[in-house]
Design a protein around this nucleic acid. Sequence first.
DNA 1: TAGCAGGAAAATC
DNA 2: GATTTTCCTGCT
Length: 304
Amino acid sequence: MEFTVSLDSPFSLEHTLKSGQLFRWRKRGEWWYGVVSGSVLKIQQDGDTLRCITGSDRLDSGFVTNYFKLDEDLEHVLGTLTKDEVVTRAIEKYYGLRLVRQETWECLGSFVLATNANIPRIEKMVAAICARYGTRFEFEGDSYSSFPAPGVLAGAAMADLRACGLGYRAPFLKHVAASVADGKIDFDGLAALPFEDSRKVLLKELLGEKVLLGVGPKVADCVLLYSCGKDEAFPIDVWIARVLAKSYPRLIDSSLRARLARDGKIKLSYGDYLRLSQSVRKHFGRYAGYAQQYLYMDAREREA
DNA sequence: TAGCAGGAAAATC
DNA sequence: GATTTTCCTGCT
């Protein structure tokens, strides 16, 4: 199926797909190829038009609009952020970068793998579990695999999971997959809850047993921001922590600031994370997640 | 709450 | 080629 989507709000496909939210997009020639919802979405931006070619009728213009959140007025969103030189420069540089709305299970499964790994490695791990456990299909003569269903990963042998290069993350992914397969997390309900409540759901325990092993506040924030439309979520990873320490010290409470100055290294305890997260969300406002994504992109590109 | 381990691969030296 | 770092969380 082939169609176009006209943009009436700023959008940069390139910045969005390279911003570290998604792990399954590759550029070949002028086209971006992604496996989304079990089919290939092939897409190219030409000014204010998106050209799309898909392998499934389900991936129509409505789907694309929803996936890239094109219904969200980016100018308005960025206008609400509390500006300063640092975030203003990042926004100018990567203007059009948008948060996406990916499928919650895939997002959760992917970010469980993201602990202590860099992006090339995460992409490799995700590709490996898709190839090993996903459903294979063809598009334009090439072979692709869907992101595996939770029930499939829940039933996977630990040794096979480890063989995908997951290391110590293998048992976490299996556990999370089993919880999801057993319906212990109400994904649909998440979007309807206030932000802090939705995060509590992802971090919750039942009968003294953690429901989602390997999911702490950072991963929870990623899931809520990238798949549940919680635009106020502000995931704090090592890159963002460095940006905050360098450019936003006044958002960091004195105790943490003192420890940062003392040992230089940035390690956030659970309590540190929640306090800092709240402080930063209060500063940037209800679309804080957009500020986070622009700052993250800028910090990473600067390094490269 | 603080300290540490965890597995493997990428970055860096 | 060795060492350090890596979009962190769980356990004690």
